[in-house]
Design a protein around this nucleic acid. Structure first.
Lengths: 117, 117
DNA sequence: TGCTTATTTGGCTATATTGCAAAATAGATT
DNA sequence: AATCTATTTTGCAATATAGCCAAATAAGCA
């Protein structure tokens, strides 16, 4: 039943476009890196820049993508703007992505072994 | 501790590029629609085409994106190729995306109310 | 008020993604 | 072998995204 509820929620309540939009926000190495940092607590833009290493304007653009998708939210603290995640479920979410990566590597490794021996 | 393990796994084991690549595979309305259909069981390419309504070549391209990201896997059954998800965690994953969508709508609604009254 | 610092936005070019139509494959079927 | 059928790949035009520089804001401070 639980799964059914979930499935229902997923399938009926919001459009695929809306969900794809959110997913797209995560789907960039720099943005993902920032999100992962934010999983540990809020960070100001300058910290995120240092972490990612791109131009400040690029960082800001990425943050606006995340903001628009409702993934992060920023608030002033003195002279800086500190960003944080809007939702704690994001961590679990990324664990699954990681699982997929892992499986993919495993499969590739297995295929390699197959080719050689 | 559990969270720490998770976090560790996410942060150290695979590159942000690899994870972003997987996420990108989900980040398209047509692909998301197909993935959601596959959550209920395997489907052949023609069924997915009917569901999404695009050109067959487009569907096939989308499937190759999902295949490359390790999200789906296809196997022959008679004359058709049936696709299925590689990982059951995907459902939970999408629940979180949905949650984000929901929150975003809520916030927007709240903001609208704020503007008016 | 004018200066400084932190962040965002506009303009631009380079690159990537999308989707259709046509051609190519790969297997099953006759 | 010839032919269907289901699917994938290629070529190409349209659109979207990324990233850098320079310019614009915005808020705190001299």
């Amino acid at each position: 039943m639980k799964t059914n509820l979930k499935t229902n929620l997923i399938k009926k309540k919001y459009s695929a476009e809306a969900r794809a939009h959110v997913l797209k926000a995560f789907a960039h190495p720099a943005r993902l890196t920032m999100v992962e940092a934010l999983m540990e607590g809020s960070r100001c833009v300058c910290e995120l820049q240092e972490l990612v290493g791109s131009d400040m304007s690029t960082i800001s653009r990425h943050l606006s993508v995340l903001r628009n998708a409702g993934v992060v939210i920023g608030e002033k603290r003195g002279t800086q703007i500190h960003y944080r995640l809007t939702c704690s479920c994001i961590a679990d979410f990324l664990v699954c992505v990681n699982q997929l990566c892992f499986d993919r590597l495993e499969n590739e490794a297995a295929r390699m072994r197959g080719f050689r021996g």
